[in-house]
Write a protein that binds this DNA or RNA. Structure first.
Lengths: 141, 141
DNA sequence: TTACCTCTTTAGAATTACTCCAAACTATTG
DNA sequence: CAATAGTTTGGAGTAATTCTAAAGAGGTAA
């Protein structure tokens, strides 16, 4: 509808937010760019706050959490639970799984198409499968 | 203050603790019995504290956590990370995976022999696989 | 038994990660 | 530009877990 080219880096992110039904506010735009303009990554709330403040973006912790959860709901992010007491948010929302390096808080993706998970048992009655997560826990040699 | 028939149920648990190199203290024995004398189960620290106090065992929260972690190190328990901000400890340490019912804090085991996880990619260099966790997240219908 | 040393336990303070809240703010619509 | 509904914010609040330092309890040797 509008082929304007005022702010090249903003446009794509703006459309993603609009498509998700999220009002494109200053903070959401800035966080979206930090998250999505750097390829696949795994971020904690704490880290994102740090990056934002380093980038000169003023955001509160509450907004970081709100935004992370809203993006997750919208399918723009995926929450990864591997470490007790700390949530990671993954900008890669394609079908994949994770390597988790114990101790070092490092996460690495691997494509789900490479592996096969076969013969999954039937889920408990009254439930249906929402997602299958494979976490390969590795240790440093 | 001590019930008489204390020998039979204590013996096996006592040996497990000794074998793990853990001094069999009053609290460790009591917690071990609560944990292992009731088949496979998934317990949070909070829950275990509740059970202990209901059973008339006086233990502090610090000891609950210490014990849970020591048992885990000793291979008597397995920590399951599925829920952000809450750790479960599984008394089933055989090769198996989990169904996690979203929202309801319910965990169910399923045997790993029933499924196949094939063609796992090579782990990041400098690391080796310690464990593979498969978490099947299910939702209530 | 007793002494003794080390390992354990404990209450409570501290920390961490996150959520909640009411007030100030801002994008959008008319 | 004003109305209003969605957003952001600092700070208080909460839940889970860890820390601390002092008291307590197993194991062992004599």
């Amino acid at each position: 509808m509008k082929p304007e080219s005022a702010t090249p880096p903003f446009a794509p992110v703006l459309d993603r937010l609009r498509a998700a039904g999220l009002r494109p506010t200053r903070q959401r735009l800035a966080l979206a760019r930090l998250l999505f303009d750097a390829g696949d990554r795994h971020v904690t709330a704490e880290q994102l706050l740090g990056e934002a403040s380093r980038a000169g973006v003023r955001v509160s912790m509450a907004t970081i959490y709100n935004t992370l959860h809203q993006f997750t709901h919208a399918g723009l992010l995926r929450e990864v639970v591997v470490d007790p007491g700390r949530s990671y948010f993954d900008t890669n929302v394609s079908d994949h799984h994770h390597f988790f390096v114990e101790g070092s808080a490092e996460l690495h993706d691997f494509d789900a198409r490479g592996i096969e998970v076969k013969h999954l048992p039937v889920p408990p009655s009254g439930t249906h499968i929402a997602r299958v997560d494979v976490i390969v826990r590795v240790k440093k040699n």
